[in-house]
Design a protein around this nucleic acid. Structure first.
Lengths: 348, 348
DNA sequence: CTTTAGCACTCCAGGAAAGAGAGTGCTAAA
DNA sequence: TTTAGCACTCTCTTTCCTGGAGTGCTAAAG
């Protein structure tokens, strides 16, 4: 059943008022907000209907109305005016994303903090590869007899390197052979296959080289597995304590622990540029009384990231959505122009 | 003026009782705790003295006593029985530090989380170089005409690398010259000097190489400056909400914001293996009502790290101190055996 | 001089009672 | 269908009260 226009307008007023004040909204306030074209008594009748239909709730018999999740949903889908960011805001977002060339992890975690402090709710952020990460190229740089640097370029063109300490002295002359072997046999394959191949080539390689080889592979496997696993970073959980709905330490603690411990359960939709989850629409119990807004952004061609914001169901969806998608655009742009360049493989 | 033994014993009981219950301690309870050798009236006289001397405080005229910062200080210095870690605890600490070979940052942040969750208070952790970080060695690996990998080993033997995108095509033949230049002119010097030298060599180098050179130096400066700047990581701030003294959302919010925003002001003593700061002994206002326990650990020969724990003045100093130094030892061991190997310079 | 018992006193915590205020539902009239 | 009027409901705040825990002081005992 479709609601009348007036009912919708009333619902909108209730939602927007409640978003601001966090207090149940009364008929009189609504009448005033609507310009006095109708009396509070009329509003009361309409309100009773809206409660009946499940769009509003009444904390107790004689108090104002509060939007139900269903009410928020309708508001978000139909009533909400999609906000545009002001120039100043866009400016501010871009400014906070003026990051130097740093590692992906660090960029992301800084972006997370920026989102949280700009939107004033806790935020989470992650970058996910679309496919399993593989090595694209290896390089070994001798340092001295007992150590060398291993450099690995990954499928997404990120480069990782570390100093390896050698158990056995290795002849520098032999390094190129090893590098060739690494690049021909261990690139472009998933980590689980790597260990298998290591066994296969065991006999073709002199023992002291084999030790270095297996150390290198161990390092590669570690790095690749970590890279293909989504790391979720949360920021600004303390923002919660400013909100009246989390003045109760137990509630706040529950949600904050959830945010910092069981991040894996945070909503990670895999379609569309933006998703809004209201109260019970969330799967996790800890989020049943909160809403989540998530947006996605692109990292080069192969990766996609998500930024999300967690707040009370009473969150200011219009503003949050606008700002969040502003950030998502900013991040997409950031990763588009910078780093992660050519597409052709460089396998040897 | 030295306290009598009995006064000390009473103080000890008060502190330990209060640590557990967070409620003012009464004379009767103390008498019971002391085995009934004296009556509560006697205790009351002693308590009055202790208040007079500033070791205890009385929230209001007719309530039990609470230790003052001065009282805690005496307790920590003289009365506290230095706890030993049980085997199970040591085991647990070492287990949580079973980290794979990962980057320093990541190891540290994981260690911070482990500390916090083991001690049940918020924790912070940092690694600081004793001297300014410099580059020890450079390497350039061509990828294709338009990009190459820059690898830099730093003074502490950590290795950083990144893919650089070139504005101009560079002849691969010329790379070795550039690497030699980098290693002869830009190693072992602080970052501010690097830019100066860059100017100096400008004329000696053909323009398309110079561009690559300056990109490399820009990267190096970035990384080095970031590395020599102490990054402070905090973990487990939400633990605060479990404590009765932080059930008030405002108080909790204040401290949590401090922990996540102005970490630079956290106590960073530069001497001794462990330091305990009680209440007003802290410089930062935000910490005036809290206590901080900090321990230091070694990272190889050149770096030193700090782990700290923040809690109410009523924190269980004995346990915290024992566990924290357990962690510090564990970390020292971790960084001692793994990575960061030879001492001789490899400058070329 | 130190310790103890006794007792009046203080202060907090928690519950009950009361009043104010905001808002509702319902009825009857426009 | 809308509106005005009115009684009613529920919460929130304030006030008052009481029980209990703990103290400080005094006077007696060791």
């Amino acid at each position: 059943m479709e609601l009348t226009d007036r009912k919708k307008q009333i619902l909108k007023v209730v939602v927007e008022d409640y978003i601001q004040t966090a207090e149940p909204v009364g008929s009189k306030a609504i009448a005033a907000e609507m310009g006095g074209s109708v009396s509070s008594a009329t509003i009361r009748n309409e309100l009773a209907d809206l409660v009946e239909l499940g769009y509003l709730e009444q904390p107790h018999t004689s108090s104002g109305r509060v939007p139900s999740p269903k009410g928020y949903r309708l508001y978000v889908n139909e009533l909400m005016e999609r906000q545009k960011l002001s120039i100043a805001e866009t400016e501010k977002i871009n400014q906070s994303l003026q990051l130097k060339m740093e590692e992906l992890d660090r960029v992301i975690s800084q972006a997370g903090r920026a989102v949280s402090s700009f939107i004033n709710y806790p935020a989470y952020i992650t970058a996910t590869g679309k496919k399993k990460m593989t090595a694209r190229r290896f390089e070994l740089l001798p340092v001295d007899e007992r150590s060398c640097i291993v450099v690995m370029m990954m499928g997404d063109n990120r480069v990782k390197s570390q100093l390896l300490r050698l158990q056995l002295k290795v002849d520098i002359e032999q390094m190129p052979t090893l590098v060739t072997l690494l690049n021909s046999h261990f690139t472009g394959i998933p980590t689980d296959e790597m260990n298998q191949r290591l066994m296969n080539v065991a006999e073709q390689v002199p023992p002291q080289l084999f030790l270095l080889l297996s150390q290198t592979i161990a390092y590669a496997v570690d790095v690749l597995e970590e890279a293909s696993q989504r790391e979720i970073i949360t920021a600004g959980a303390n923002q919660l304590l400013k909100l009246p709905e989390f003045r109760d330490a137990d509630k706040a603690h529950e949600l904050m622990s959830f945010l910092s411990d069981s991040k894996e359960n945070l909503p990670m939709p895999d379609d569309g540029p933006m998703k809004i989850l209201i109260g019970p629409e969330n799967v996790s119990d800890a989020l049943k009384d909160t809403s989540v807004v998530v947006a996605s952004y692109d990292i080069g061609d192969d990766m996609r990231g998500l930024i999300g914001v967690v707040g009370p169901t009473r969150m200011d969806y219009a503003t949050v959505a606008a700002r969040l998608s502003g950030f998502a655009d900013g991040l997409t742009r950031l990763f588009g122009k910078q780093e992660l360049p050519p597409k052709e493989d460089t396998k040897e």
